[in-house]
Design a protein around this nucleic acid. Structure first.
Length: 492
RNA sequence: CGGGAUUUGGCACAGUUGGCUAGUGCGCUGCGUUCGGGACGCAGAGGUCGUGUGUUCGAGUCACAUAAUCCCGACCA
């Protein structure tokens, strides 16, 4: 029997220590709260990036790159924005080290103190808007649709591998528009891009919604988000898109001359998603055997394991595998032949399952004789014999079946852990079990804060899509009227 | 930053009321037998016990300090 890896516990570290690290995705770094992403994990991230990047380009965006360091004065112009990030910034104060005069080692050279401190970007709105100021003069310069792939640093009190690390990789889109309506449309378009990506590539169902005022991005007028449910019933925000209004334009004095010759402030959006998606991937799909990767993100889509006793068998099987590999690669899939001679097949099976490879093929003497291969899909672990001459086509179809099945499975999990709750007593009981609670809320920050204080549950979003139909009701805590249910959950 | 726990070969751990030569499993190296669901035998290599100071004839073990990691809070993508 294959050994099972624990993953159903509410204990977060189990997920990563038992799954991710062994599955070669990441490991902790000595640097506070940062992580080393190992090659296998980084390959998955690169696939996510490539797919997202294509979607951004298709919606008219271009990539650019802005500096890592932001002068402190830039950062402090937008009052709400600085209030939101001030507590988690890494600050550069000096630019030189020197030998410690009192002995061995190195100290900061006090004479190399910077006149103005530099902030390591926690997000790039400030430096980008101070740049846009010089780029935008006329209505003809708009819109500006730019995305940046970068690393950012947020000096969090508490870090969690992938979900909240001090340094993380992400993309941030920053756009400038002539009208409010155009900017709102952009923010909504981009949250939809994230939702489509989550559904089609991550195989992860998400709810598209709007954040409440207290959960909004610092400096935004409106924040859209996609919320996913992890297998422990907790919610994870997987991407956000902000309508920033004219806040940054006014703080950084970004104006354009409109067609009538009048000066106007521009309207802004920003949107981003990060390596947190890697965490989501693990926590949505993994099972007792390890990772389960969606075909589109698997660095290796098909692994082939030869089964043999003698050298003669080994070479004839590997020869046949080589031919099959070429056919499968021609059909567009990535294939690896695991020809390591020192490991037995059972070990290899378990190892590739841990890594989440979508399909495994085994070829032994029996298959060589019958002209078949043994095919096992990772999502269901179903094992079937497939004729070699139909293999490549079958695999292409199977990848699509796996994608659909993974989504369907995750969707059914989410739906079966989503409850309509109308009474406070029931809420208190249900929230302990995890899942999404669809509840009426009176719309006040006070009630929201009170519920959070009492239960640690937050309003994940006010759903935008047809996730829950509009209906009137009353707030379960205060009894005040409500016109729509919102999603309450405990979140990462 | 509060509360708790941990730190001993690459990994997971044991190590008693301080005691002489620091162990076990996995992994690693070599040879042989194996190979259709995590093989086995034999022989090897690998550790100044997180760091520092102290107590002691003697410290992995006791005291103090310090650092890192993990969990629970507050904060947050």
């Amino acid at each position: 029997m294959a050994k099972e890896v624990t993953n159903k516990e509410d204990n977060y570290s189990k997920w990563y220590n038992d799954l991710v690290v062994k599955a070669d995705l990441a490991e902790n770094s000595a640097v506070r709260g940062c992580m080393v992403i190992k090659p296998y994990g980084y390959a998955i991230w690169e696939k996510m990036k490539a797919d997202l990047d294509r979607r951004f380009k298709e919606t008219g965006h271009q990539n650019a790159y802005f500096p890592l360091f932001i002068p402190k004065s830039f950062f402090s112009r937008e009052a709400e924005h600085v209030a939101g990030f001030a507590k988690e910034c890494a600050v550069v104060t000096h630019h030189r080290l020197m030998n410690d005069p009192d002995g061995s080692g190195v100290v900061v050279d006090p004479s190399a103190k910077l006149e103005e401190e530099l902030i390591v970007r926690p997000t790039s709105e400030t430096i980008i808007w101070s740049t846009y100021r010089n780029w935008i003069k006329s209505w003809r310069d708009l819109p500006i649709l730019i995305n940046q792939w970068a690393n950012v640093v947020r000096w969090e009190m508490r870090t969690r591998l992938f979900l909240r690390t001090s340094e993380f990789l992400w993309q941030e889109g920053h756009t400038a528009h002539a009208t409010s309506a155009e900017a709102v449309a952009e923010a909504e378009r981009m949250i939809q891009v994230y939702a489509d990506f989550a559904r089609d590539v991550l195989c992860m169902p998400v709810v598209v919604g709007r954040k409440t005022a207290s959960e909004r991005f610092a400096g935004a007028l409106d924040t859209y988000c996609i919320e996913a449910m992890m297998q422990d019933g907790k919610a994870l925000q997987a991407g956000t898109s902000h309508f920033l209004g004219q806040n940054f334009a006014k703080s950084f004095d970004v104006q354009y001359t409109d067609k009538e010759g009048k000066q106007q402030y521009v309207w802004a959006t920003s949107w981003g998603t990060s390596t947190r998606l890697m965490g989501a991937l693990v926590m949505v799909h993994s099972d007792g055997r390890g990772l389960v990767l969606p075909p589109a993100l698997a660095p290796i889509q098909v692994v082939m394991v030869p089964i043999y006793k003698s050298d003669a068998e080994r070479s004839s099987i590997l020869e046949r595998m080589g031919l099959l590999k070429k056919e499968i690669e021609t059909a567009g899939l990535s294939v690896k032949i695991d020809d390591r001679d020192n490991l037995r097949p059972g070990f290899k099976f378990a190892e590739w399952e841990l890594k989440g490879v979508p399909v495994r093929l085994a070829v032994g003497p029996r298959d060589l004789a019958s002209g078949e291969v043994e095919m096992v899909r990772r999502d269901t672990m179903d094992k079937v014999q497939v004729p070699q001459n139909a293999l490549a086509l079958r695999l292409v179809e199977l990848m699509e079946e796996i994608r659909k099945n993974m989504y369907a499975k995750a969707l059914s999990f989410r739906d079966s852990h989503t409850y309509r709750v109308d009474s406070w007593d029931e809420f208190r009981k249900k929230i302990e079990e995890g899942g999404f609670l669809l509840c009426h809320w009176d719309g006040t920050p006070e009630t929201e804060a009170r519920i959070q204080e009492l239960t640690k549950a937050t309003i994940r979003c006010i759903p935008l899509d047809s996730f829950v139909e509009k209906e009137d009701g009353v707030d379960m805590l205060t009894g005040k009227p409500s016109h729509q249910r919102v999603i309450f959950a405990r979140a990462y």
